[in-house]
Computed example of a mutant assay.
Amino acid sequence: MPAIDDAISKLDALIAKLETSSTADLKSPEPVPDSGPGLFARAQLQVARVLTVDEIASDKLYKTTIDIGGDQTRQVVAGLKRHVAKEALLGSLVVAILNLKPAKLAGEASEAMLLAADSPLEGGGELVKILIPPEGSAVGDPVFLEGSSPAAEYPKVLKSGPWKDIVAGLSVRSGRATFEGQPLVTAKGSVTLPAEMPDGAGIH
């Protein structure tokens, strides 16, 4: 009977539609890089050069200008005043993260962060040293994990949560800067620290 055949066809179509919808619901969402190399690759780390180092009204902070390549500069307020002489910082190559949210420190805008390692000293105080790009590195060189490649693109602003997770995995091992045990490198070699910086020292 045509009416019954038509009803069966409609029922079959409805069942097929429901099965398709259920299958779609079971599909896994796109993975979120919340750990390991995928997480690290969200941080835009690169080699920069310190162009200026100025005193400001703080016993901890310098106001610096860094060259990040492509005829671009950033102002960075860095907490290095007690640990690194102005003359030693001026003109040096450093490792900077460029895609953190800009901040204001001591009334001054800070548009990036210079990475340094720190370790407590016996009797109080701390040892602080900036990361050293490998010899032959140039301003603008990306910093990535050994065995991988630089990210093709980065989030415009890396949120504080993921950055804190990245910092938790950064440490010094055998004189090299590492993330979860993997060395940080440029195309020229490993990012290092001075010999007096002990294994396990944190990097931020």
Rank of each mutant, 00 (worst) to 15 (best):
R49L: 06
E146W: 07
A3F: 06
F144K: 14
V77R: 01
A24S: 15
A109K: 14
D5F: 08
E196S: 12
V143D: 11
P133Y: 11
V167R: 14
D34Y: 08
A152R: 09
A85W: 04
A96D: 03
P134R: 00
P142T: 11
A48E: 12
L98G: 11
K159R: 15
D141R: 09
W163N: 14
E126C: 11
S137T: 08
L90I: 06
E153T: 09
V143L: 11
A151N: 11
Y62A: 02
P37H: 10
E122F: 05
S92Y: 00
R176H: 07
N99C: 02
G136Y: 10
G189K: 05
P102H: 05
P29L: 06
L51I: 00
G161H: 12
I132L: 14
A116H: 09
D199C: 09
K129G: 09
G69Q: 01
L39N: 11
K156C: 06
H204R: 14
K104A: 12
F144I: 13
I130G: 07
K81E: 12
L45E: 10
E108I: 05
S28Q: 13
N99R: 04
P134S: 03
I56R: 10
V95H: 01
S92N: 14
P134L: 04
S92A: 11
G181W: 00
T73S: 12
S35W: 08
I97P: 05
